[in-house]
């Protein structure tokens, strides 16, 4: 246990060094918020060209808050989608981490934890900007903290699925991470209500932990659920559903990790270098 925790801590430290030691903390902060701000502005512009305004309506609050929290999810997914390729092909250290006595799994969780932590700053910044466009915040702090913790667990599970896949694929981890995050963006009622989706996708969305996570986000930040479909689910049931789906997701990701890990060792892809 002590060894796992130490690896976890080192993973976090390493992730911060890789991400941020190229510059000063201030410049890193600006860099870190550029993507979330750019993404939010894109959505606000889309909202503006349709409605002619960027001031507080429920639709705007839905879109803005969902996107701000999605940036946390997206950041973690992007990191975990790339980390295997980065270690294997860029730094070429994957094989050394593998043969070291530390656990690769806890190393990856450590890296995901730091990325999650780093994404909290842009989230706070975006929430602050939201005040200027009159997002009607009504924050339920205990629920928000619970939502963030359970969200982190779910994101790690999703990230481990990505890692497991990239153990066997060529250099395209970034795209995998982005695309996987795109799946949640599309299906989880992040920037539009789930009932807009065609029925088959809507049914699929209800099996994803991210759907309930974004519902909890809105309940904890806006004090209500705007989505017509998800608002029919009472809060306790919503919490229960996210716990169940996250546990399922975690179990699947763990099983997939061990399977892919075994296949990667068998096929010798831990040292693969792809330079198309």
């Amino acid at each position: 246990m002590h060894s796992l925790l130490r690896t976890f801590k080192v993973g976090m430290w390493l992730d911060y060094q890789i991400e941020a030691n190229w510059t000063t903390p201030l410049i890193f902060f600006v860099y870190n918020i550029a993507k979330p701000v750019g993404s939010s502005l894109l959505l606000l512009a889309m909202y503006y060209v349709v409605t002619g305004s960027i001031m507080g309506t429920d639709a705007l609050a839905f879109l803005y808050v969902g996107n701000a929290f999605y940036m946390v999810l997206s950041g973690v997914m992007m990191e975990l989608g790339w980390v295997v390729q980065e270690d294997r092909e860029h730094y070429q250290t994957l094989k050394y981490i593998y043969i070291s006595p530390s656990s690769y799994y806890s190393y990856l969780i450590g890296r995901a934890a730091m990325r999650f932590f780093l994404q909290i700053f842009p989230l706070i910044f975006l929430m602050f900007i939201g005040i200027f466009i009159q997002v009607p915040y009504k924050i339920d702090a205990p629920l928000l903290i619970f939502t963030l913790i359970i969200g982190w667990l779910f994101m790690i599970s999703a990230g481990m699925v990505l890692n497991s896949v990239t153990l066997l694929t060529a250099r395209y981890g970034g795209a995998i991470g982005e695309s996987f995050a795109g799946l949640f963006y599309l299906l989880s009622g992040v920037v539009f209500p789930v009932n807009i989706l065609p029925w088959y996708l809507r049914n699929f969305a209800l099996f994803l932990p991210s759907t309930y996570w974004f519902s909890l986000v809105r309940r904890s930040v806006l004090g209500k659920e705007i989505d017509p479909l998800l608002s029919q689910i009472p809060l306790p049931l919503c919490i229960l559903l996210i716990l169940i789906t996250t546990a399922m997701f975690f179990s699947i990701s763990l099983a997939l990790y061990y399977l892919m890990n075994h296949l990667a060792r068998k096929r010798g892809t831990l040292e693969m270098i792809t330079t198309y």
Binding site: T51, A59, Y172, A175, S179, G182, L186, F192, I196
Partner: peptide, 20 residues
């Protein structure tokens, strides 16, 4: 990854416009 999956984010933005 390059063909099917970019459609996901494209679809999301299309649905944003539909919702609006």
């Amino acid at each position: 990854w390059d063909t099917f999956l970019p459609l996901l984010s494209i679809s999301a933005y299309v649905f944003v416009y539909r919702a609006l």
